[in-house]
């Protein structure tokens, strides 16, 4: 059992200025997840008639990408390759002071407390993050052979859960790792190659339009990514972009 001091960002809505508020989390079990710890704090707040802390969460098994908190200056907290929901309290000590903040970036406006609007990421995908295939009328699955290395590399990129930690971690608020993961997932596959050049141009344009910054190769994103998506995919995106330029001339 341990007691913690939380400094949590509270902001009523998008127009509110927002501030840190201090909460004591008492009798926290080591086996709890970080979100279960917040549940306990919220139950107390409700009983006191106060508004609980609003935070995004859903699957609580590290795959939906909903949870989004910067804990002591690190998106998803101190444990590598772990979402907040999979972060357990055994990684904290009695008496710890914990700062909890929302993702911060121009493209992610705050909705309430720790909840931000990440629909900009959806719009990047809508710009071209797909293979333009209609349902039906496709060849047999084994008619498209894909070397195992390519399929594995595509899968490495496709593991992205779209949580936006890369944006939160990036000093430039850039969504390059997110965009690169989708671009490279599809560029590695023969089905995706056909539209690859168009895709990379459309998606990077959309990213800029949404107000994300450019990549300065700080590599903070890879360190913060709960799925360990590699910055080499950003290099890959750049390569695809250059190829697209050369091809179009």
């Amino acid at each position: 059992m341990m007691n913690l001091t939380l400094l949590v960002w509270r902001q009523k809505n998008a127009n509110d200025k927002g501030r840190f508020e201090k909460y004591e989390a008492k009798n926290i079990n080591h086996e709890m997840s970080f979100l279960e710890m917040l549940d306990v704090v919220n139950e107390e707040l409700i009983k006191e008639g106060k508004e609980p802390i609003a935070f995004d969460h859903d699957c609580r098994e590290g795959i939906c990408g909903m949870c989004s908190q910067v804990i002591n200056g690190v998106p998803h907290g101190p444990l590598e390759k772990t979402t907040v929901c999979q972060l357990h309290m055994r990684h904290f000590k009695d008496g710890d002071v914990i700062y909890i903040e929302p993702w911060r970036a121009k493209a992610f406006p705050i909705i309430k407390d720790l909840i931000v609007d990440r629909s900009a990421l959806d719009r990047i995908i809508q710009a071209g993050g797909y293979i333009s295939v209609h349902t039906g009328g496709v060849p047999d699955a084994n008619a498209i052979l894909i070397p195992k290395e390519d399929a594995d590399a595509a899968m490495d990129a496709a593991e992205c859960i779209g949580c936006g930690a890369c944006v939160a971690a990036c000093p430039n608020g850039s969504a390059m790792l997110f965009t690169a993961a989708k671009v490279m997932h599809l560029a590695k596959l023969p089905q995706g190659k056909i539209e690859a050049f168009r895709r990379v141009c459309l998606m990077t344009e959309a990213m800029q339009k949404e107000g994300f910054g450019a990549c300065s190769n700080h590599y903070e994103c890879q360190a913060a990514c709960p799925k360990g998506i590699k910055v080499s995919f950003i290099s890959g995106l750049n390569r695809e972009f250059i190829k697209a330029q050369l091809r179009s001339k």
Binding site: P139, A141, A154, H185, L189, Q191
Partner: peptide, 22 residues
């Protein structure tokens, strides 16, 4: 069977063997 065909065409990276088959 159609589902697998459809998903592969969409770019779902199913596991493959070294010859490139599913």
């Amino acid at each position: 069977n159609n589902i697998i065909d459809q998903c592969v065409a969409q770019g779902v990276p199913f596991a493959r063997d070294y010859a490139g088959y599913l």
